[in-house]
Design a protein around this nucleic acid. Structure first.
Lengths: 120, 120
DNA sequence: TTCTTATTCAACCAGTTAGTTGATCAACTA
DNA sequence: TAGTTGATCAACTAACTGGTTGAATAAGAA
């Protein structure tokens, strides 16, 4: 698990690490929109917004189509699911940790603060 | 919703947009570890790993404590939850979209490809 | 005290990102 | 045809990121 689609995870997390791009995602979540529409709320140039959209597109968080001169942008929810799936892995493990917590607390290793090499 | 903790979202997504840092999270998900432990699997210097950990710490994805010379790193699952919560917002909206999909398909606006300004 | 281990700080370099402006392309409209 | 709109390309700059090495700090161990 991991490593095959590392690049896509990189790209998706990176893409969302920007408030403008997250705002674009939010806007798209209730309907597709053109670059012009998406650029309108921001105080930056349309070229800059176009670049942001390219970043989202490379991360496959959005797709694009053609409508005359327009290039409507659409949300691709599958990639968002991939992120929750990645995070979800560690939520499950964490629950295991809680399940074992009292056992750990009783062990001498924990009391000596050597919880460093207790596995692998 | 949004904008108050924008900075934390920025930092968290950015922090996870790196395979080394994601790998550190994965490692921490089954137990705390020191910088030395965390650095071991990687072909980069310990200083570099230390910087990665600082990035994770600033994003509050991990916390640190003190054990003699060691500074053990611990996973902070709450921040991971915050990310799934953010993404989850748009999953919900998307389900609304699906719920309304047939209605949209019947409307004239959708057939003309003008799904651009159909709200706000 | 001196030595060793664990970690960080500081300065630096190479590559990348986010923004700019100006020109260009693509497709509709008069 | 010429003009307009929507979007991208190209070149550039400023700021940041990820890595390096070498020195410094903190805490045990001899």
């Amino acid at each position: 698990m991991e490593s095959s689609n590392d690049g896509l995870l990189d790209a998706a997390f990176m893409a969302l690490a920007d408030p403008i791009r997250r705002s674009i995602i939010a806007r798209l979540s209730h309907g597709s929109a053109t670059v012009n529409d998406l650029a309108e709320p921001f105080a930056i140039s349309k070229q800059a917004v176009s670049k942001h959209i390219q970043v989202l597109e490379q991360a496959q968080l959005v797709t694009r189509s053609r409508d005359a001169q327009r290039r409507p942008v659409h949300l691709n929810p599958e990639r968002l699911e991939a992120l929750t799936a990645w995070i979800g892995q560690y939520r499950l493990v964490r629950e295991d940790q809680f399940r074992n917590l009292d056992a750990v607390l009783r062990s001498s290793a924990a009391s000596r603060g050597r919880q460093t090499k207790d596995q692998s």
